[in-house]
């Protein structure tokens, strides 16, 4: 897959010292790392610590990642491990123990909930990943179609300098291309989507 924006290409370039490729990796996956920190209830300071550790671990392992396409899964596991490490440090442990003592009725396993939420995180990361790999013309159109407040087909046609009659068919083509990317990534094992909607 000679795609310039594909994860494997970015990892290779970063491995060779290309800062721009590294920036692209961070831009693409920071939302995944961040959202996992949120799910674990970390505050801003702890989230920053976890983020820092995760990126350092990635830098240390760039040369060792055998299958760069599996990067999202690796990042997810590493982030969760780091979050758990932070959660398990004494002060948090004590705080949590206190809370459990105070609220015996709220004994729902928080990790069941986390498991469900992480499926949504994976989906979101996968969607961003697939979107980032679409050709510019598709991305521009999709961005306008998702704009808030909504932009009319007339306006989209004017801004992109494309005939208005072509917007509908192009929308379908762009989304078909997105589905195709998603399916490719599913097969490459990037997705690991485990739950249906």
């Amino acid at each position: 897959m000679g795609d310039e924006s594909a994860v494997s290409t970015l990892v290779l370039r970063a491995r060779n010292g290309d800062q721009q490729a590294w920036d692209a990796i961070v831009d693409r996956y920071a939302p995944l790392v961040w959202s996992i920190c949120r799910r674990y209830g970390l505050d801003r300071l702890d989230s920053d610590d976890v983020g820092q550790t995760v990126w350092l671990r990635l830098l240390e392992n760039l040369g060792r990642l055998r299958e760069p396409a599996a990067l999202p899964g690796w990042l997810e596991r590493t982030t969760k491990n780091e979050c758990l490490r932070v959660v398990q440090t004494t002060r948090r442990l004590e705080r949590t123990e206190e809370r459990i003592k105070r609220e015996p009725s709220e004994q729902v396993d928080p990790f069941d909930e986390l498991l469900e939420q992480s499926a949504a995180e994976r989906d979101n990361a996968l969607l961003r990943e697939a979107f980032a790999q679409l050709p510019d013309r598709y991305r521009q159109l999709l961005l306008l179609l998702m704009a808030d407040p909504p932009v009319s087909y007339e306006e989209i046609s004017r801004r992109l300098d494309r005939p208005i009659g072509s917007i509908g068919p192009q929308r379908a083509r762009s989304l078909a291309a997105l589905r195709k990317k998603l399916a490719e990534m599913d097969m490459a094992g990037v997705g690991m989507r485990t739950t249906g909607r």
């Binding site: 590294w22 961070v26 961040w34 989230s47 983020g51 820092q52 990126w55 979101n124 998702m146």
Partner: peptide, 19 residues
């Protein structure tokens, strides 16, 4: 999914890049 990525603090991303 894209909205989720917009909620990430710019600093969080910048620190990762600087490393």
């Amino acid at each position: 999914a894209l909205a989720e990525s917009e909620s990430v603090p710019a600093e969080f991303v910048a620190v990762g890049k600087a490393l």
